[in-house]
Simulated scan of single mutants.
Amino acid sequence: MQDRALAYASQVLGPCDVVKDHSWGHQWSSVVQLRDRAGHEWFLKQHRDRDRYLAEVTAYLRWVPTLSDHAPRLRAHDATQRAIILSALPGHPARWPTATIDPTQIRAETAMHHQAGALLRRLHNAHSEPQPQYAAARLEELELLTRQAANLLTPGELGFARTEIQALASLPAPRLVPCHRDYTMRNWLIDSGKVYMLDFEWTQLNAWVTDLTRLHIGPWRTRPDLRDAFLDGYGRELDDADRVLLRADAALTTVWLVIKARESDQESFERANREALHRLMAEAW
């Protein structure tokens, strides 16, 4: 964390103590927990990338307020430092589901996913707009990634992603809503059964199923009961068009995640997303 960012936090909050550094190993941002002289706790987040800073600030100003106390409150932001100051939330990070036959744990996990689905619906309901060129835009996005992934993925892997995305051309263009785009358990806090949503740095307008992708290629693969609970909380089932959209987004997302994992030197994360891409390919066959 740069000294100037901490100095900015002191200007906003007054003298503060650093409680803990919560930064992830990928180094895309730094996150420090602070405590002011009144005993209130805050989080100071500083982005390395200006686009991520702008995306997160935009989300907090436009759409996150619809989540009320289920998300942090933006106290201040500074474009020069690419820094934001957020209120602290109670709770602990949600645990990744495991294969279990314990009925108490199953009930807790399904209740969590049900509430997470309902919470996501509130974010998506904050805005909606048409995008007639949705299929073309997603294909253009893949072409940009293909140039970055030329030495990471095979022509067959990239060709699979292209085929999945080309299938979007046969569908009516979906409406765009504010999507979190990293909606997994690592960005949920749980406190006494209440779910909180965190980290909006990847938020942008997209089709609603975009926010199902990380769960679809992750825990829902072996726990369809969690998918059903989530969709019940969201209040919408997947129809045939949604499934095509989800397959396309899953293919695009795994390509993107392989690139990001390599950029941040996260070998296990890169391997996991390669495996996810191969599972998608196997299911398509």
Rank of each mutant, 00 (worst) to 15 (best):
Leu119Phe: 02
Ser23Cys: 01
His114Asn: 08
Val31Met: 03
Gln105Ile: 05
Arg122Met: 13
Gly117Thr: 02
Ala88Leu: 03
Arg122Thr: 15
Leu61Val: 15
Cys16Ile: 13
Val57Trp: 04
Arg35Met: 15
Val32Phe: 11
Arg37Ile: 01
Phe43Ser: 02
Glu109Pro: 02
Asp51Glu: 13
His47Tyr: 07
His70Tyr: 11
Arg107Ile: 10
Glu41Ala: 12
His127Cys: 13
Leu67Tyr: 03
Gly14Asn: 02
Ala108Glu: 15
Arg122Asn: 00
Gln131Lys: 08
Ala76Ile: 06
Arg35Tyr: 09
Leu123Tyr: 06
Ala38Thr: 03
Asp102Pro: 06
Leu61Tyr: 07
Asn125Lys: 11
Glu56Arg: 00
Gln27Lys: 14
Pro97Arg: 08
Pro103Ile: 04
Glu56Leu: 04
Gln115Leu: 10
Asp78Phe: 01
Leu120Glu: 07
Pro90Leu: 05
Pro130Ile: 03
Arg48Glu: 00
Ala59Met: 04
Gly14His: 03
His26Lys: 04
Glu56Asn: 00
Ile101Tyr: 14
Thr58Leu: 07
Ile106Ala: 06
Ala38Leu: 08
Thr98Glu: 06
Gly39Ile: 01
Arg73Asn: 09
Thr66Lys: 06
Pro15Met: 05
Ala116Ile: 10
Thr66Ser: 10
Arg73Gln: 05
Asp17Gly: 09
Ser87Trp: 04
Trp42Asn: 03
Gln131Ile: 09
Met112Val: 05
Pro65Tyr: 10
Ala76Lys: 14
Ala126Thr: 10
Ala88Ser: 08
Arg75Cys: 11
Ser68Gly: 09
Ala55Met: 12
Ser87Asp: 05
Gly91Ile: 00
Asp102Tyr: 05
Leu120His: 02
Lys45Gly: 01
Tyr53Met: 02
Pro130Lys: 05
Ala59Leu: 00
Ala76Trp: 08
Leu34Gln: 03
His77Tyr: 11
His77Glu: 09
Thr80Asp: 09
Asp36Ser: 05
Pro97Lys: 04
Thr80Glu: 12
Leu123Asn: 07
Arg95Tyr: 11
Thr98Cys: 09
Arg52Ala: 09
Val19Thr: 07
His70Gln: 14
Trp96Ile: 15
Thr66Ala: 13
Trp42Tyr: 05
Arg75Tyr: 14
Thr110Asn: 02
Arg75Gly: 12
Asp36Glu: 00
Thr110Leu: 10
Gln115Trp: 08
Val64Lys: 07
